[in-house]
Amino acid sequence: MTAVDFEAFVDRLATVAGEAVMPFFRTTIGVENKGGKSFDPVTAADHAGEAAMRQLIKATFPSHGIVGEEFGNESEDADYVWVLDPIDGTRGFITGLPTWGTLIGLMKNGAPVYGVMSQPFTKERFLGDGGAARYRGPLGDRKLRVRSCTKLEDAIMSSTSPRIFQGKDLAAFEAMEAATRHTRYGGDCYAYCMLAAGQIDIIVESELKPYDIVALIPIVEGAGGIITDWEGGPAHKGGRVIAAGDRRVHAAALELLAAKA
């Protein structure tokens, strides 16, 4: 499979997911809670989007593995594994906000090598292979590049919600919020793409799953950013994650989190 063929396939994968999901957006769609006491919504749109992607992957690359939010894992020890989240930001989706997106990640021998965030409502796609990242959408086709930010006090931070942090982790996050200039909540996958585009400086999260983050790693890194866990290790397994556009502010954030968590 050539690079051009691969890009065409991923583009098709994002398109079929969007075609499956969009008929449900801003409708009176039913919502189930799969999180027990905590609200973790899932809809027919989530199921339809992932089913469409799985069908295309299996038909094209039957030897590849798949890790997905809605239908579990298949052949996850394969050399190539697709990591799928049909709607990252379902809370945004069910409230009609366009801050959600379809995440398509590809792992090779256990490491993220390619990622796409597709937002079919705004007709935007953010793509990265770890070495470069780019945007396609209403603003044209352009390269993505993070911005310089050396100090926490100058940084704009994003996080899904303060409620994802517990105990010492919450104290650490609150210290980060106090140290930075401004915090925005609820961006989900879109926030990572805005970091790659130079609009946000740092993102601090917890309780992530692999399908929440694998696709975003090549985009952030391709734009010149850094994304790790709170100990500075690989982030592709999820958990507590920190992303930054500038390595200096990332180092400062790691130091603060280590002191408080």
Rank of each mutant, 00 (worst) to 15 (best):
D5K: 13
A14E: 04
T15V: 10
T28N: 15
I29F: 02
F39T: 04
P41R: 02
T43P: 10
D46M: 03
H47V: 11
H47M: 10
A48P: 12
R54P: 00
Q55M: 10
S63R: 09
V67L: 14
S75T: 10
D77Y: 07
D79R: 08
W82K: 02
D88I: 04
D88R: 09
T90A: 03
G92Y: 03
P98E: 09
P98R: 03
P98W: 06
L103E: 02
L106N: 02
M107R: 12
V113K: 05
Y114E: 02
Y114F: 15
M117Q: 11
F126L: 08
D129C: 11
D129W: 09
G130L: 00
A132K: 13
A133L: 06
R136A: 02
G140D: 05
R142C: 11
K143G: 13
R145W: 07
R147E: 09
C149G: 02
D154S: 13
T160Q: 14
T160R: 12
P162G: 00
R163P: 00
R163T: 12
R163G: 02
E174K: 09
H182L: 14
R184W: 10
A191N: 08
M194K: 13
L195A: 00
L195M: 12
A196W: 03
K209S: 09
K209A: 09
P210C: 02
P210Q: 04
Y211W: 15
D212C: 01
G222P: 03
G224A: 08
D229K: 01
W230L: 06
E231R: 10
G232H: 08
P234F: 06
A235Q: 01
R240E: 14
I242S: 00
G245W: 01
D246H: 06
V249Y: 03
A258L: 14
A259D: 14
A261C: 14
